[in-house]
Design a protein around this nucleic acid. Structure first.
Length: 800
RNA sequence: GCGCCCGUGGCGGAAUUGGCAGACGCGCCGGAUUUAGGUUCCGGUGUCCUUGACGUGAAGGUUCAAGUCCUUUCGGGCGCACCA
């Protein structure tokens, strides 16, 4: 049979769509499988082969699940709000709505050409007002629950151009446009109180099946640490200075304190500080640095000693100086630390530079050369002296602090609240109204969606404000509470909003009265298997788990966690081994591959090229190997006339079914395909094949190469769709060979093999080796020390 | 800096998790078919002074047995909050 892929691929894609065989059904009596892949951002460049790889894994699994009798939901959609589209629109003058529609159309046609079994009746677009109505609705629910707030934060600002700049546009502390010094300016922005969910997001990880490194990255991101809050009394003030520490056991080694330059205590006691101007100058200097620089320049510590206020070490009552330094961040803990130079590297560097005392309180290092951060016996620590474990010392100190009423256990998270806004056009309008009398008021639910108004000029404002601010008609409104004059919020939501709940909408994509029907949610949730890139493990995954958990807490979804299982695919690198990018010109367009080789070859190659989870470079010549394989499969039709089933081939079939079935579940698609290649080699060697065996073979291959196998199925006279036929079963007994080859080792060295029936016992096997003349020379005149026998694998005889 | 992952032929990668390293594919070499190129088919292909020895970034260690476990070391990659 000739493989005319151009004709058959399109034909079957149309027939599948016409018959709707990949549509999820509403039959809730069937077991369900919800497979989810990360929906793409429809950029103008179109898809590259990396997208195809990202979807191919669950594509194969979803197809296998259908063949196993599951009701499968495998949807696709578009995450279409965001900057690239907007910037392209500004550049070309084409409205982002039109750009988005064109890109979605392009992506859709590319996806369809590859033959993915998505349920196209459930496609979603985050920029569709029927969709973002519910994005805004969830935001409103959060606002009601107090999870939305506004706060002031520091941004890069150019005082000359009067514009807020991104980190990229303010490198080296200079404005990219006018080259004047950038300062850090306070700006009012929206936040979602995700930190309130830190513990739930952490504990939720215990109940899900994520890849270990996915879990770990999320744990690190949340960054829970257990420690203590301690209040240090200040001289000359009636207030104390609160710090957070994880090492209260080293309290006797505290010889100074450090606070962030922005710490409010400086302003508060300005009149008692003798060098206030000096402190202010230092603070201004720090403000020029970006957050990035502050965390990177760890080597050279800077700071200024506060003159006029000191602190008292509560452990020993000694007076200690307070410094301001930018190595302490206002955003973590309390913005103030107790410094233990002997046992903390940063404090050590600072103490050395400023000539501050370094007191050893844990034995084990040499504090004259460096800080010692290991464990050891406590010294110079009064009631802690002699204690050898950190845990015990911490407990004793906590008890001491509790007794004095100046400290207690505490928990801190690295995760901060989620800055939730953009001063940009192409995003969901934030449904909040500012009323002079009532303050911030949510747009009423019945007025949602709050539609993004159409604009001719949607470039961002000069002062960094949203372009929506220019629309007076839209901005000016009445307050829903008091009916008075009010103004609409003009910020839009960030890129991550729409993708934080999209997996819920797929379940009931066209519902106008609720975001999804509760019965449907109950049946389909949780997502059984979510596959995507490692780059989304922290942001998107954390954000969407947070939204979902919130919806669970208010009774809107039936499960605490959205995703039962999470895996990740590796990148496809360019043929040069570099990450694919337009600028390097090494991007492979799936359309080109489909044109030349067909979708089946593209699919098989992408899954065969290497370990699914690892990065692998594209190779044009390796694609040809998969083309040969597909053509050899087509050629099977010509030899599948024999009726002589050989026992060896039968066994090979059962082994292959077993391996392919197991490998697909482990996402080891490369070895699954390799097993089918081996089988086809055996078939060609045998030169014979029954029609039933051919049917089994093409059924196994169908999830990988659905078009050719569907065509062959029908050529064999079948009228059904192979794509929803029954997945092959294997007979375990027939996967076991009757005779196995044992490896024979003498003294741990391989000396040959010996064939014996499967299941031979140790004594028989060892006797057989001893009787074999090939091994006799190794035993001559030697004494046996040990005999090792691994059933059906090897025999090792140690002699001396 | 902190955290995590990975180093196997000329190349992509296998190795039932401690049991015959290099499956499968690419590339290459030889042969057949072809007017020729391409295609297809058959055979070969880790290294070496080829009875045999050596080989999984390097060096040690544990073990009857190490790519796999432990220690040290070198090299590469990824993540670390308002760019998709």
């Amino acid at each position: 049979m000739r493989h005319d892929f151009k004709q058959i691929e399109q034909k079957w894609q149309e027939k599948w769509e016409e018959a709707g065989i990949f549509h999820a059904s509403d039959d809730y009596t069937k077991p369900k499988f919800y497979g989810l892949v990360e929906f793409p951002y429809p950029s103008g460049a179109g898809m590259h082969v990396g997208h195809i790889k990202a979807y191919s894994g669950l594509e194969v699994i979803s197809r296998k699940r259908r063949m196993e009798g599951y009701n499968v939901l495998f949807p696709m959609g578009f995450d279409a709000y965001g900057l690239p589209t907007e910037n392209y629109a500004i550049k070309t003058g084409i409205h982002p709505r039109i750009v988005t529609d064109n890109n979605i159309e392009k992506f859709t046609s590319q996806l369809k050409r590859v033959g993915f079994s998505f349920d196209w009746t459930k496609v979603i677009d985050t920029t569709d007002d029927k969709y973002y109505k519910w994005t805004q609705w969830i935001f409103r629910k959060m606002f009601n629950k107090g999870l939305v707030f506004r706060a002031t934060t520091l941004v890069n600002y150019c005082p000359h151009c009067k514009v807020v700049l991104s980190n990229e546009d303010s490198q080296g502390g200079k404005c990219d446009i006018c080259h004047s010094d950038i300062i850090q300016k306070s700006k009012d922005v929206w936040y979602l109180r995700i930190t309130e969910y830190a513990d739930k997001l952490l504990s939720g990880l215990e109940d899900v099946d994520y890849l270990p490194n996915v879990k770990l990255q999320q744990e690190n991101w949340i960054g829970r640490s257990e420690g203590a809050f301690v209040n240090f009394a200040l001289t000359n003030c009636d207030e104390s200075l609160r710090i957070y520490t994880t090492r209260c056991d080293t309290m006797f080694g505290v010889t100074f304190m450090v606070i962030a330059p922005e710490h409010p205590v400086i302003q508060k006691y300005a009149d008692r500080i003798k060098n206030f101007d000096e402190l202010e100058a230092y603070k201004a200097e720090c403000a020029k640095k970006t957050e990035f620089e502050r965390t990177q320049l760890v080597k050279d510590k800077t700071g200024v000693k506060i003159d006029g206020i000191a602190a008292i070490n509560p452990a020993n009552g000694k007076e200690i100086p307070i410094y301001i330094s930018d190595y302490v961040m206002m955003g973590y803990g309390t913005g103030a630390i107790m410094a233990v130079p002997a046992h903390d590297e940063r404090d050590y560097d600072f103490a050395k530079k400023f000539g501050i005392d370094i007191i050893e309180v844990i034995k084990g290092g040499d504090i004259s050369t460096e800080a010692y951060t290991g464990d050891g016996e406590m010294v110079n620590s009064d009631f802690l002296n002699g204690i050898a474990t950190k845990k015990e010392a911490i407990e004793k100190m906590l008890a001491f602090l509790a007794e004095k009423g100046i400290g207690e256990k505490g928990v801190q998270y690295k995760m901060k609240d989620w800055a939730f806004n953009r001063q940009r056009y192409w995003g969901e309008p934030i449904p909040i109204i500012h009323c002079e009398k009532c303050g911030m008021v949510g747009v009423p639910y019945e007025e949602l969606p709050l539609r993004l108004p159409n604009m001719e000029n949607f470039a961002p404002g000069e002062g960094g404000e949203s372009p929506l601010a220019k629309l007076d008609d839209w901005v000016n409104c009445t307050c829903p509470e008091c009916g008075g004059k009010a103004r609409r919020e003009t910020d839009t939501m960030p890129q991550w909003a729409g993708s934080s709940w999209y997996f819920l909408r797929y379940i009931d994509a066209h519902n106008d009265s609720v975001f999804a029907d509760p019965d449907k949610l109950k049946y389909w949730l949780p997502v059984d298997w979510y596959n995507g890139g490692m780059e989304h493990v922290t942001r998107h995954m954390i954000y969407s788990r947070f939204w979902h958990r919130f919806l669970y807490d208010i009774g809107e979804v039936p499960t605490a966690e959205p995703y039962a299982k999470r895996t990740a695919q590796g990148l496809i690198l360019g043929p040069d081994g570099e990450k694919m990018s337009k600028s390097k010109g090494n991007v492979v367009d799936p359309n080109d591959v489909v044109d030349e080789y067909g979708a089946d070859v593209l699919r098989v190659y992408i899954l065969f090229m290497g370990d699914y989870a690892s990065a692998a470079p594209w190779s044009d010549s390796s694609v040809k190997g998969c083309k040969r394989f597909i053509e050899r499969v087509a050629g099977l039709a010509d030899i599948a006339k024999g009726n002589g089933v050989t026992e060896k081939l039968e066994s090979a079939f059962h082994k292959t079914i077993k391996k392919v079935s197991a490998d697909i579940e482990d996402m080891k698609f490369n070895t699954a395909i390799a097993a089918m290649m081996s089988l086809i080699n055996e078939i060609y060697d045998a030169g014979t094949l029954t029609v039933d065996e051919l049917k089994t073979f093409i059924t196994l291959l169908n999830p990988f190469a659905p078009h050719l196998t569907e065509e062959m199925w029908h050529t064999l006279g079948e009228k059904t769709f192979l794509s929803v036929e029954k997945w092959p079963e294997y007979d375990e007994a027939k996967t076991v060979d009757s005779v196995v080859e044992y490896g024979v080792q003498i003294c741990g060295k391989f000396r040959g093999t010996i064939s014996m029936p499967t299941g031979t016992d140790k004594d028989t096997a060892i006797a057989a080796v001893r009787a074999d003349e090939n091994f006799a020379k190794f035993f001559e005149g030697k004494e046996t020390v040990k005999e090792i026998f691994v059933p059906n694998k090897l025999i090792n005889i140690v002699v001396k």
